[in-house]
Amino acid sequence: MLRGAGGVARPLIEWSWRAAHRAFAELPIYVATDDQRIVAEVERFGGRALLTSADCRNGTERCAEAAEILGDRIEVVINLQGDALLTPPTILQALHERLRGDATVEVATPAIRAADATLAHLLAEQEAGRVGGTTVVTNAAGDALYFSKHLLPHGAARAGCPVALHLGVYAYRREALRRYSAAPPAAAELAEGLEQLRFLDQGVRVAVVDCPPPDQLTAELNNPEDAAPIEAELARLGLD
């Protein structure tokens, strides 16, 4: 449970649902899960949930299954992970607009330019043998060439080359999700632990939306020690 500005304790999934609702109050929002307990919790706070298979290997496969359950009611799916409650609405909206504005884009995902302090953190984590974040390199059209948990491009810090820090939010067209779920995991996907690499392996265009660095914390809740700074940020933003 996490507390916001008003001190009310809410489960993580409700905070993430609220983050999606702040971005898309007028659009249908569903929580896709393989856990009946989460379905019950979502329905308790008034949300809508879809019970999907336990065989989904990642969030993109789960979105593909959810899209098939919903059928022709939807054409575009935006995937906000359940632990990404601090994702700014502007980033989600930018992805939606990217697909709406260009019918040739099948998948879109955001990235921000790593500031000096962020770049120093990524380098320090890499030197210590830890993952500090995911980076992406793009072509001249702004489409992804590769994503990695290693710092890309190699030698960027020495060469003064900009580094794009990837944020794990996605927008997909239904057909791209169908192709994804029908294909086996790619070798690079398994090696990097990055699900989006399956799209690149299939030759699917992944547009990288260049977003300005948000003026707020965007940390995910992955460990117990993440709760305190996230609660502090919820309070600072006045979210309840």
Rank of each mutant, 00 (worst) to 15 (best):
H150E: 11
H150G: 13
L151V: 07
L151Y: 03
L151M: 07
L152V: 06
L152C: 09
H154E: 08
H154T: 05
G155D: 02
G155H: 03
G155Y: 02
A156G: 01
A156N: 02
A156W: 00
A156D: 03
A157L: 03
R158P: 01
R158W: 00
R158F: 02
G160Q: 05
G160T: 09
V163Y: 00
A164I: 15
A164M: 15
A164W: 12
A164Q: 15
L165K: 02
L165C: 05
L165V: 03
L167H: 04
L167N: 11
L167Y: 01
G168L: 14
G168I: 14
G168Q: 10
V169L: 13
V169G: 15
V169T: 13
Y170W: 06
Y170E: 08
Y170S: 10
A171G: 07
A171L: 11
Y172M: 07
Y172Q: 13
R173A: 09
R174C: 08
R174G: 04
R174F: 12
R174T: 10
E175N: 07
E175Y: 14
E175F: 11
A176D: 09
A176R: 14
L177A: 08
L177G: 03
R178F: 14
R179D: 01
R179E: 10
R179K: 12
Y180V: 09
Y180I: 04
Y180T: 10
Y180H: 06
S181F: 12
S181A: 08
S181R: 14
S181M: 13
S181G: 09
A182E: 12
A182I: 09
A183Y: 04
A183I: 04
A183C: 06
A183V: 01
A183R: 03
A183L: 05
P184I: 11
P184R: 12
P184D: 08
P185D: 15
P185I: 14
A186R: 15
A187F: 12
A187W: 08
A188H: 04
A188L: 14
A188N: 13
A188K: 08
A188R: 11
E189A: 11
E189C: 11
E189M: 12
L190P: 02
L190G: 04
L190F: 08
A191E: 14
A191C: 13
A191V: 13
E192S: 07
E192H: 02
E192P: 02
G193W: 03
G193A: 09
G193S: 12
L194V: 02
L194N: 00
L194Y: 02
L194T: 06
L194S: 07
L194M: 05
